[in-house]
């Protein structure tokens, strides 16, 4: 009996001690705290770009992932502040809560840089850099208008996370660009919460109800997995130029998106300038920690549109084509 108690205690103790030892293995002077809202393929690429940029600056990175929980993110930022990191780079999950988090960090003398998702009050942060979800949505909308060429055109709009600023604005600005094109009918708007499975279900339902569907808007690359799966099953996964092809526009610029463009399966991809965004965030964070004000205060980098026709020329500018 006593042996079992001892064994269990030892196991629990050893586990904690091992974890502690790993955590304490390194210590450096300049530390950048990085707090992400979630982890998915795009964020993994962002994390790698930040890691490279921070290592390039001979600094250490402390990373935290809130897993879509604003409370957890607030707590993680508070921890970074109490740890006394040099600067904090945050991808906010809740763009309202980010304002107070930023003010609190800055009041403690720690620069707060927001990345990718802008907080609702840009003045609250030290610096912001991100993509331009509205510009990307508009480019997508204008492309559909051009492709429809005045003829009746049924479009399926997959939506990203509707509790998320990028998701909301990619959708809203697409709708604005389509407003004047009365020949384009959005047959379904499917909120997916960035979930490829929901994109699959939404596409399946739309294809069933509208076999003459002409276009699909997939505002993030991971949705393509679900979309392609349905199109393949229906015999509609055919290259651009084939009469039965469905026009597809996507956003992100991941390796998956680039591959789809190279295989001529999608018509337009709008690549977020991810490495540039991350690099600017790190530079601004380090500069601000040294007392230099970030100028401009906020930057929105528009996506890079490319398609099967110009993928060879554009590949060097698209991060996913070089990964």
């Amino acid at each position: 009996m006593q042996k079992r108690i001892f064994g269990l205690s030892l196991a629990a103790g050893l586990m904690l001690t091992a974890v502690v030892a790993i955590g304490l293995a390194n210590a450096d002077e300049m530390t950048i705290g990085v707090a992400f809202d979630k982890i998915e393929p795009f964020r993994v690429a962002e994390k790698k770009a930040l890691t490279d940029a921070i290592a390039g600056a001979h600094a250490k990175m402390v990373f935290a992932n809130a897993d879509k929980d604003p409370q957890r993110q607030a707590s993680q930022v508070d921890s970074l502040v109490s740890q006394g990191v040099t600067a904090i780079i945050v991808i906010p999950w809740d763009i309202e809560a980010a304002n107070d988090l930023a003010r609190s960090a800055i009041a403690s003398g720690i620069p707060f840089v927001s990345l990718d998702q802008a907080p609702s009050d840009l003045q609250s942060v030290t610096y912001h850099v991100g993509g331009d979800p509205c510009a990307d949505g508009k480019v997508a909308g204008e492309f559909f208008v051009k492709e429809a060429a005045g003829k009746p055109f049924k479009l399926l709009e997959l939506q990203g996370g509707l509790a998320n600023d990028n998701g909301i604005r990619r959708s809203k600005c697409l709708d604005e660009a389509l407003k004047a094109a009365l020949n384009i009918t959005i047959v379904a708007r499917v909120p997916t919460d960035w979930n490829p499975q929901k994109a699959l279900e939404g596409t399946e339902n739309a294809m069933q109800a509208h076999p003459d569907l002409a276009g699909i808007y997939a505002p993030w690359n991971d949705a393509l997995q679900g979309v392609f799966s349905v199109l393949k099953e229906k015999g509609r996964l055919v290259p651009v130029g084939v009469p039965t092809h469905i026009v597809i526009v996507s956003i992100d610029g991941t390796p998956l998106g680039c591959k789809a463009v190279r295989e001529r399966l999608i018509d337009l991809e709008i690549a977020t300038p991810l490495p540039e965004m991350c690099y600017r965030a790190v530079v601004a964070a380090i500069k601000a920690a040294g007392g230099t004000k970030a100028e401009p205060h906020a930057e929105f980098l528009p996506g890079i549109p490319y398609g099967p026709g110009d993928v060879k020329e554009m590949a060097s500018k698209v991060w996913g084509c070089n990964s």
Binding site: D67, K68, D69, P70, Q71, R72, A74, D94, E96, A97, N99, D100, A163
Partner: peptide
Amino acid sequence: RLGSAGPTLGDN
């Protein structure tokens, strides 16, 4: 605590 509320606040 957050100074904001949201429709997914209670998800976790």
